[in-house]
């Protein structure tokens, strides 16, 4: 990388990895312990029997909780806090859900296609009552495909940061500054992945998932709009304020 020393890349990487480890919501050890704790048949039936509004609200709460950890992740990244406030807000607004989806692969078990939700692992069928099977199955597919890349915690940390600090977001006031930081993160990620993966194309495969991430977020927005048309009072009164601010 021209004009960047290995020392600087290493500093950036270590800062991002530290931030991730501090703000990842569940440690790797906690996730390991929970690994085969799955929701029972009765518990799944219980989720399936909830009304659409109730389950949407529960999911909105969980997503918002996860987003709060992503905000903290961003705040502990030195380069992110050096961006102007406008761009910090823009990047988080447009990227926080994508980062949640990346982080989700840590709490996804590809052996039985279950995700950690409200304390235990459960499959897609748990979310039937939401009435957006396409979105749920797309999210599960994405998590499974990300798991197949067998990313280390460090790689997840750096990839999360690269997804967040993206020049593809409209209305950035200092796109060049964002670009420089993003490039350094990708260089650091490339360096780490070259060491960890036999597959030379591992980073390219990872970058190739980014359009899917964007599509998932668009689909989420569409589903929310459709849901809100039918249940405006649920969204206005019962959804977390941060969720509404970001996605409404």
């Amino acid at each position: 990388a021209p004009g960047v020393s290995m020392g600087e890349l290493d500093r950036i990487a270590q800062n991002i990895i530290k931030s991730h480890l501090e703000t990842c919501q569940y440690t790797a050890e906690e996730l390991q312990q929970l690994a085969w704790q799955t929701h029972s048949y009765e518990e799944v039936k219980m989720y399936q029997s909830k009304s659409r509004e109730v389950l949407w609200q529960q999911c909105a709460i969980q997503i918002t909780h996860a987003i709060q950890y992503v905000v903290e992740f961003a705040k502990r990244i030195t380069g992110f806090m050096e961006l102007c406030q406008n761009d910090q807000i823009l990047l988080l607004k447009s990227g926080c859900l994508e980062v949640v989806l990346v982080r989700m692969c840590r709490a996804f078990n590809p052996l039985n296609n279950t995700v950690l939700f409200e304390g235990k692992y459960g499959g897609m069928q748990m979310f039937k009552a939401l009435g957006c099977d396409d979105l749920v199955s797309a999210v599960f597919d994405f998590a499974k495909s990300l798991c197949s890349l067998q990313l280390t915690e460090e790689e997840i940390a750096l990839f999360s940061a690269a997804v967040l600090i993206s020049t593809d977001r409209p209305w950035l006031m200092e796109p060049r500054k964002v670009q420089k930081l993003q490039e350094k993160i990708y260089f650091a990620l490339q360096h780490i992945m070259q060491k960890n993966h036999m597959d030379e194309d591992a980073l390219a495969k990872l970058i190739g998932r980014i359009p899917t991430l964007a599509a998932l977020c668009t689909l989420h927005t569409e589903e929310l709009q459709a849901f809100q048309q039918l249940h405006p009072e649920t969204v206005n009164v019962l959804f977390p304020p941060l969720y509404k601010e970001l996605f409404n």
Partner: peptide, 16 residues
């Protein structure tokens, strides 16, 4: 900032 009061406040607050 005006349209994202909660996000702005989260960014301003000291680390939680």
């Amino acid at each position: 900032k005006e349209k994202h009061k909660i996000l702005h406040r989260l960014l301003q607050n000291s680390t939680s």
